[in-house]
């Protein structure tokens, strides 16, 4: 899975780099008279990050599918609840676990920065770091949703499929935003995680987007807590 992730993310990086070099060789052909106006960083990393968000559709279900579902399947959760731990500590621990795993997957991506540098790219650090920050926030928010779905079932496969469907729905929300008109377009764009993420990839830091991801994360954390509390009244 990790190898797959690095392969695809590598392809996502190489395509805009090649695309950019093609344009820069022959700007007139693409009717770009004022070529220096195109920002290298934005062209390459903007497209890199927005493609990368599609990877999350596949990565997040796999990272989160075992978190609670596997413990339920193996019935190890029962013993965990009898240890001196609160429900919050258990959920926070699971969340931290998947987030750290996700974080270690991101570290090698920093290697692309080195490659870019080596190719002689001009750097605009701000948008690049912002892109990474946005990707981390989007990923963590999605992971929270995945952990919640995992807590609903005792089958990791069902958890992965469920998470995939929900993330797909969020992705469709972003497309619906383009189709819908009037107030609905606004509703969709405010609810769509990808719309908020897009600002980060464009190098725009807006408190609204940060707050959105923060509450998205808290909301699913809260739902997970409620979900594991159901053992109190469900037989």
């Amino acid at each position: 899975m990790m190898a797959f992730f690095f392969l695809i993310s590598g392809i996502f990086f190489v395509i805009p780099v090649l695309g950019y070099s093609k344009i820069s060789m022959n700007p007139q052909q693409y009717e770009l008279s004022n070529f220096p106006g195109i920002n290298q960083t934005q062209y390459i990393f903007g497209s890199f990050f927005s493609n990368l968000s599609i990877m999350l559709l596949f990565l997040v279900p796999v990272l989160t599918m075992r978190s609670f579902a596997e413990e339920k399947r193996q019935e190890t959760l029962e013993l965990l609840f009898t240890y001196p731990l609160s429900d919050f500590e258990i959920v926070a621990g699971k969340q931290l676990g998947v987030s750290l795993l996700f974080g270690t997957l991101l570290v090698p991506l920093l290697g692309y920065l080195a490659v870019f540098r080596w190719l002689g790219g001009e750097f605009d650090w701000g948008p690049v770091w912002l892109g990474f920050l946005g990707f981390c926030l989007l990923g963590t928010a999605y992971l929270a949703a995945g952990v919640f779905i995992s807590s609903l079932t005792k089958s990791p496969i069902v958890s992965a499929l469920g998470t995939f469907s929900v993330l797909l729905l969020f992705w469709l929300l972003d497309s619906a935003r383009d189709v819908a008109a009037g107030p609905w377009a606004r509703v969709f764009s405010e609810l769509s995680p990808l719309a908020h993420y897009k600002n980060f990839t464009l190098g725009i830091l807006d408190a609204q987007d940060m707050v959105f991801f923060f509450f998205f994360f808290l909301y699913f954390l809260f739902l997970t807590l409620r979900s594991i509390e159901t053992r109190n009244w469900k037989n």
Partner: peptide
Amino acid sequence: YLPEMVSLY
């Protein structure tokens, strides 16, 4: 506590 089904990791 030793549960009925001893399920460990």
